[in-house]
């Protein structure tokens, strides 16, 4: 007979987390090894430790490492952002790319790059503000119109469309604002440098740490607003704080990876099935799962049609689109709460 404490942990969250904790670094290592020039793990390790200074070292340090780090950071950030947004809004269809968070961040990135093209360190913070404005606008519209689940999604679609149109307008007037614009629109990690990742990392890391620290509060919030308040939780400030942290994560990802879709939608759903009971396992597994998924998709995009390269956003859309349709059908069948 299982004890009370064991049972409270639900379906083997540790096993799923352990698998992801092994899988994610393995995929990252593969990402460093594979490409037009295949490198042995020893060469990669040598390059990382500064012992390999030849061509292999250049490839690892200046091409593949930024890309692998970008995949890990963007995947983890977007997946955790999605998990938090879905929980706070009590809406399984919500995700950063669906409710206007990514588009708001994208617009802020476009404006920032056109106004201050040399201020790379400012981009993640501009993206954060754009993401926050996006989510607050959608929340406001949804609350004014009844806050039904579908209303929230529709409001997000409207806000996303407006932001996309504004991004187009910015790029029309200042074409050099977003270099590699097509990659930015679908989400791409080609020609990424560590200079662009580091500021985003410093935005995402504290947001992620704070979310992990607030996992207990998020658990209680998921019981519904009234129950949460009756348990002593200050619901409104907490909701705003959680959404701001989710916006910071999404903004950090968008600032260097562009408008990546679906990671924030798919990964939390999968992780809810693999791990259960509790926001902390969900956040941690979403971070690892998002990082693994994006790294795998990027790897596929680079290898499937080599020497041609598909942007990671295209591979994600091809896998995430069908998943989203399945989710909608499942919603319609009334089997998702």
């Amino acid at each position: 007979m299982r004890s009370w404490r064991t049972s409270s942990m639900g379906r083997q969250p540790n096993k799923a987390l352990a698998v992801l904790a092994v899988l994610t670094p393995m995929l990252a290592l593969l990402s460093l090894c594979l490409g037009p020039v295949a490198l042995a793990p020893g060469e990669v390790l040598g390059a990382l430790l500064g012992r390999e200074t030849g061509t292999a070292g250049q490839i690892v340090l200046y091409a593949r490492l930024p890309r692998a780090c970008g995949c890990l950071l963007a995947g983890a950030s977007l997946a955790v952002s999605g998990a938090v947004i879905q929980g706070v809004l009590d809406n399984p269809l919500a995700a950063p790319n669906i409710i206007g968070v990514n588009a708001g961040a994208g617009l802020a990135v476009a404006i920032c790059c056109s106004v201050a093209p040399t201020a790379a360190a400012m981009v993640p913070f501009a993206a954060f503000l754009g993401a926050l404005a996006g989510v607050l606008l959608v929340l406001f519209i949804a609350q004014r119109t009844g806050a039904a689940r579908i209303t929230l999604v529709l409001a997000g679609v409207a806000v996303s469309s407006m932001c996309s149109a504004c991004i187009d307008a910015v790029v029309t007037f200042v074409p050099e604002a977003l270099n590699g614009y097509s990659d930015f629109r679908v989400g791409g990690l080609g020609s990424l440098s560590m200079d662009r990742i580091v500021p985003a990392f410093w935005l995402a890391l504290p947001a992620l740490a704070l979310l992990v620290a607030l996992a207990g509060e998020l658990d209680v919030l998921l019981l519904g607003q009234e129950t949460a308040r009756s348990l002593g939780l200050r619901v409104q400030p907490l909701r705003l704080l959680l959404l701001a942290l989710a916006a910071a994560l999404a903004g950090a990802a968008v600032s260097f990876a562009g408008l990546l879709g679906f990671v924030g939608l798919i990964v939390p759903h999968i992780m809810r099935r693999l791990t259960v009971s509790g926001s902390l396992p969900l956040l941690l597994s979403s971070a690892l799962g998002g990082a693994a998924l994006l790294t795998a998709c990027d790897l596929l995009g680079r290898l499937l049609f080599a020497p041609y390269e598909l942007p990671v956003g295209v591979v994600l859309a091809l896998t995430g689109g069908p998943f989203f349709i399945w989710l909608l059908l499942r919603q319609r069948g009334g089997r998702t709460g």
């Binding site: 009370w4 049972s7 409270s8 942990m9 639900g10 009590d90 207990g216 658990d219 209680v220 998921l222 019981l223 519904g224 129950t227 348990l231 002593g232 939780l233 809810r272 259960v276 009971s277 509790g278 709460g337």
Partner: peptide, 16 residues
């Protein structure tokens, strides 16, 4: 609401 958690975890939330 009907959260997707175990009954025991749900009851533990009462200790919040």
């Amino acid at each position: 609401p009907v959260p997707s958690i175990t009954a025991s975890r749900m009851v533990l939330h009462g200790r919040f």
